[in-house]
């Protein structure tokens, strides 16, 4: 064995040892982690999550961060948004919002994707619940540090 090959072999073994040690450490620290399912092993079944209660109607909900689509402060069961009909518009359209005392749709929702103003709701804004959602009693699964816009300007 030449000096060079011995050195290579040494490097190789130490590399493997280091790898082993590192993976052991990693495996150990993983053992402390748990998924959203909790500590249950992969084979075992997990408990069904609690039934989430819908919030009753409330006044408009404060926004949590800049440009957040406003949340829906009421139940929307039975409100159909189909290709044929959009129940939300029966209170939130520009024609009806005053009588219904509802928030009117934002002006931005009349622009198509090229920024051209349309006379009616733009197709890409038609399905309200893509962005606006009602609320249930469910604590956030993951924390976040979003701030409402007033906080940012402080």
């Amino acid at each position: 064995m030449t000096y060079k090959t011995r050195k290579a072999a040494l490097l190789k073994t130490s590399g493997i040892t280091l790898g082993l040690v590192l993976s052991l450490v990693a495996a150990n620290s993983w053992a402390g982690l748990s998924s959203l399912r909790g500590e249950a092993s992969i084979e075992s079944g997990s408990n069904a999550p609690d039934v989430k209660r819908e919030h009753a109607d409330s006044p408009p909900i404060e926004r949590n961060y800049f440009q957040q689509p406003p949340l829906i402060p009421h139940r929307i069961r039975e409100y159909q948004i189909t290709l044929r009909n959009n129940k939300c518009l029966s209170c939130h359209s520009w024609k009806t919002y005053k009588k219904a005392k509802a928030t009117k749709i934002s002006q931005t929702h009349f622009d198509d994707r090229d920024g051209n103003a349309q006379t009616s709701l733009a197709a890409r804004r038609y399905f309200c619940t893509q962005c606006h959602v009602p609320q249930v009693d469910a604590p956030p699964l993951v924390g976040n540090a979003f701030l409402p816009v007033e906080e940012l300007s402080k």
Partner: peptide, 25 residues
Amino acid sequence: KGIAHQMPDTSELSKEEREEFNLEQ
């Protein structure tokens, strides 16, 4: 309306009919 079934397409209704059925939006 539409509390038990899917709503039909009401866009073809005339203005009078929309008024008759309180479907202005």
